[in-house]
Write a protein that binds this DNA or RNA. Sequence first.
DNA 1: ATAGATGCAAAAATTTTGCAAGGTG
DNA 2: CACCTTGCAAAATTTTTGCATCTAT
Lengths: 152, 152
Amino acid sequence: MRYGNPWIQQRLIEEGLRITEARRVILGILGKTLQHLSAEEIYFIVRRINPSIGFATVYRTLDLLTKMGIVQKFEFGDGRARYELTGGMEKKSHHHHLICTKCRKIIDYADFIDEEKELINKTEKALIKKYRFDIKNHIINFYGLCEDCRKT
Amino acid sequence: MRYGNPWIQQRLIEEGLRITEARRVILGILGKTLQHLSAEEIYFIVRRINPSIGFATVYRTLDLLTKMGIVQKFEFGDGRARYELTGGMEKKSHHHHLICTKCRKIIDYADFIDEEKELINKTEKALIKKYRFDIKNHIINFYGLCEDCRKT
DNA sequence: ATAGATGCAAAAATTTTGCAAGGTG
DNA sequence: CACCTTGCAAAATTTTTGCATCTAT
């Protein structure tokens, strides 16, 4: 009950969902990491904290949180999804990705998004109006070869 | 040998790769469709054209073309990748996506990217300089609820 | 002729699901 | 106490791989 972002707890309660040990642990992990974790990676960390939590619960929790918009699911093309807390309410703020298609290195960048932000907002508004979508978030990924892989 | 984009053939030849029946058929399909096709969907169309082409070849071809930057692989979050020709050299031009997280509807939009383009180019250049990436392409996806799903 | 490409079927890897049992509000 | 959640293991899905054979160049 302690621990955890009150906003997220709020959201769970709103939906009649429960704040369980597994959810607390998983949210704790997502709130602390600076990386994009796969379900498996999250599961390994979960196990260290509470070995009685199962893999299926990790998947179900991530899925639930993703559908609620609390977590964002990324797929960078290696067939394994990664998960991150959506909001910028923790250490890590919103960022975009630079992905090497060869070695699969992923670089997060957030340095140019000041200019990007404005456009994204504008685009988002226009899309909302035109397509009547309720836009929750977005993904911007650039693909190419990283410095090392270019050389080869 | 006939059929097919000469530029793509060129690229294959450059890399010492061969222009095979399977590749011709698959490129033909990708060049004609206006949709994001999954490997399975592509395979079904392939079969109708030439039943002797196997599923594994479809995967291998898509993978090859993706690595060469000829095809772009998308993962919209349903655990099944989609593929599209990268270039705007065919009917369909570059576009971004609007994805409903509930019903999984995908809307392509290309109407606001005039303004977007400039920023994307600018960002791309900055990223290339800063991270020394050789950027080949990008993905921009907006996630949310579509008009129908909002109502519920 | 030779290196690349393919088909088939088996294997891998990731994610989902059914159901009885357990936990939360 | 009712209803949501979970664990476990089995199942479903998607994608990859080995290897003998075939085919472009």
